[in-house]
Simulated scan of single mutants.
Amino acid sequence: MKRFLLLALLIGSASYSASAQSAFDVPAQYSFSKPDDYAQVEPQVLSTINWLEETPANQDVTRRQQAHRFLLAWASGSPKVSIGLQPYVGELAGKNTALLIAYMGGWTRYSLQHPGDKDALTLNTEGVKSMLKVYDLGGIDKSKGMENLRAVAAKGELDSWLRSKISTK
């Protein structure tokens, strides 16, 4: 009897684990030629951003690359979202695409959820918070810039740090 219960428990947990890992699917077929095309996939855009923030950068690499391509394709032509990339973002991300995409994702999610809010500080803050989430998950090489940003955020000084970095030209 104990063997049966143990086997049932193992099978149940294995199938739960497999279904939890495959719960997110990157849209495979998408085309963005008119404004409605962008609006139709907004729920998938938000799911993609959330999944990227919940999955360490060194896990499920193929799906992550697909998610990056989808998000970039959507963001590059979306009539609703215009992402502002300040020089500090590139300095923080360096050659790490996951951090750059995380910034874009945080900005995008906030823009979609708060369409009337165009405040540069708020949008930058949301992008940076997303970068920190992805960085803290692991799977990304440590960097001095991101470690400094973590310390700034931990001290509650993110707003003042961002104000000094945001160009309002």
Results as ranks from 00 to 15, higher is better:
residue 30 Y to S: 11
residue 93 A to Q: 04
residue 41 V to W: 08
residue 99 L to F: 12
residue 92 L to Y: 12
residue 127 G to S: 13
residue 20 A to I: 00
residue 7 L to A: 15
residue 110 Y to H: 11
residue 53 E to S: 11
residue 103 Y to P: 09
residue 41 V to I: 15
residue 109 R to K: 15
residue 93 A to H: 00
residue 47 S to M: 06
residue 95 K to D: 07
residue 128 V to W: 04
residue 154 A to Q: 08
residue 12 G to Q: 08
residue 79 P to I: 01
residue 31 S to A: 07
residue 84 G to M: 07
residue 36 D to C: 01
residue 47 S to Y: 10
residue 116 G to H: 13
residue 109 R to A: 15
residue 60 D to L: 05
residue 157 E to G: 12
residue 82 S to G: 09
residue 19 S to D: 05
residue 145 G to P: 06
residue 32 F to T: 04
residue 79 P to F: 02
residue 37 D to Q: 13
residue 5 L to N: 12
residue 52 L to N: 04
residue 145 G to M: 04
residue 44 Q to E: 01
residue 27 P to C: 11
residue 107 W to Q: 08
residue 115 P to D: 11
residue 115 P to T: 15
residue 133 K to L: 05
residue 28 A to Y: 06
residue 120 A to Q: 09
residue 13 S to Y: 08
residue 29 Q to I: 03
residue 151 A to W: 08
residue 4 F to T: 10
residue 35 P to V: 03
residue 91 E to I: 04
residue 103 Y to N: 13
residue 37 D to P: 07
residue 42 E to M: 11
residue 30 Y to R: 11
residue 36 D to L: 03
residue 125 T to D: 08
residue 155 K to G: 07
residue 91 E to C: 02
residue 41 V to Y: 14
residue 76 S to M: 06
residue 27 P to S: 07
residue 19 S to Y: 10
residue 26 V to Q: 05
residue 101 I to Q: 02
residue 64 R to F: 02
residue 42 E to W: 07
residue 163 R to F: 06
residue 137 L to P: 12
residue 146 M to L: 15
residue 137 L to E: 10
residue 165 K to I: 04
residue 6 L to P: 09
residue 48 T to M: 10
residue 21 Q to A: 10
residue 120 A to W: 11
residue 109 R to D: 14
residue 42 E to Y: 08
residue 23 A to S: 15
residue 72 L to F: 15
residue 104 M to P: 01
residue 143 S to E: 00
residue 54 E to F: 03
residue 57 A to L: 09
residue 133 K to H: 12
residue 101 I to C: 01
residue 119 D to V: 08
residue 84 G to Y: 06
residue 39 A to W: 06
residue 118 K to V: 12
